[in-house]
Simulated scan of single mutants.
Amino acid sequence: MTHLPTDVRAAFRLFAFYLRNGTLDVDLLGFDYWDALQHGSDLEMVFAIFSNVLEVDEHGRTVNDGDAQYRVAQWIRARQDPGYVVDPPFEPWETELH
Rank of each mutant, 00 (worst) to 15 (best):
12 F>G: 04
69 Q>H: 01
94 E>L: 00
17 F>D: 02
81 D>V: 05
71 R>V: 00
1 M>R: 12
80 Q>I: 02
27 D>N: 13
91 E>Y: 10
25 D>I: 00
79 R>G: 06
86 V>I: 10
17 F>P: 00
43 L>W: 11
18 Y>V: 02
75 W>C: 03
63 V>I: 15
47 F>A: 05
5 P>K: 13
42 D>S: 10
35 D>P: 09
66 G>T: 04
60 G>K: 10
56 V>C: 14
87 D>H: 10
65 D>H: 14
83 G>E: 11
14 L>Q: 14
24 L>Q: 08
66 G>Q: 13
28 L>V: 09
81 D>Q: 07
59 H>D: 11
23 T>Y: 05
55 E>Y: 09
94 E>H: 13
30 G>T: 02
35 D>L: 12
66 G>K: 12
76 I>W: 02
26 V>E: 13
7 D>S: 15
87 D>V: 11
41 S>Q: 08
89 P>C: 09
46 V>P: 06
30 G>V: 08
25 D>M: 06
76 I>S: 05
63 V>P: 08
9 R>P: 06
49 I>R: 03
6 T>C: 08
69 Q>N: 08
68 A>Q: 03
56 V>A: 07
34 W>Q: 15
37 L>C: 09
35 D>C: 00
68 A>S: 10
46 V>N: 09
20 R>I: 00
60 G>H: 09
59 H>W: 12
93 W>K: 09
62 T>E: 09
24 L>M: 05
98 H>F: 09
80 Q>R: 09
45 M>L: 07
21 N>T: 01
14 L>N: 14
56 V>G: 05
92 P>A: 01
43 L>V: 04
70 Y>Q: 07
32 D>F: 09
37 L>S: 12
67 D>T: 14
52 N>G: 06
30 G>H: 15
29 L>M: 11
57 D>T: 05
25 D>F: 12
51 S>G: 11
18 Y>K: 15
34 W>M: 07
55 E>P: 02
79 R>P: 08
49 I>K: 04
51 S>P: 02
30 G>D: 15
35 D>Y: 07
75 W>K: 06
12 F>H: 15
71 R>S: 09
90 F>Q: 07
54 L>D: 02
1 M>H: 11
37 L>K: 11
83 G>L: 07
24 L>I: 06
82 P>M: 08
7 D>W: 11
12 F>E: 08
91 E>I: 03
6 T>M: 12
47 F>I: 00
9 R>L: 15
19 L>T: 04
78 A>M: 02
68 A>W: 11
31 F>T: 02
91 E>C: 03
31 F>Y: 15
52 N>F: 06
79 R>N: 05
81 D>I: 01
49 I>H: 08
64 N>R: 12
34 W>T: 07
62 T>W: 01
74 Q>T: 03
71 R>L: 06
51 S>Q: 10
4 L>E: 05
94 E>N: 07
22 G>T: 01
5 P>T: 12
1 M>D: 02
84 Y>L: 00
73 A>T: 01
48 A>Q: 05
79 R>V: 04
35 D>M: 06
22 G>Y: 14
85 V>Q: 12
3 H>N: 13
80 Q>N: 15
3 H>Q: 13
51 S>H: 09
80 Q>A: 11
16 A>C: 00
62 T>Y: 06
40 G>R: 00
43 L>F: 01
74 Q>C: 15
22 G>P: 03
4 L>V: 10
50 F>I: 10
52 N>Q: 11
69 Q>V: 06
96 E>C: 06
2 T>K: 13
52 N>E: 04
4 L>K: 14
27 D>G: 14
21 N>W: 13
71 R>N: 03
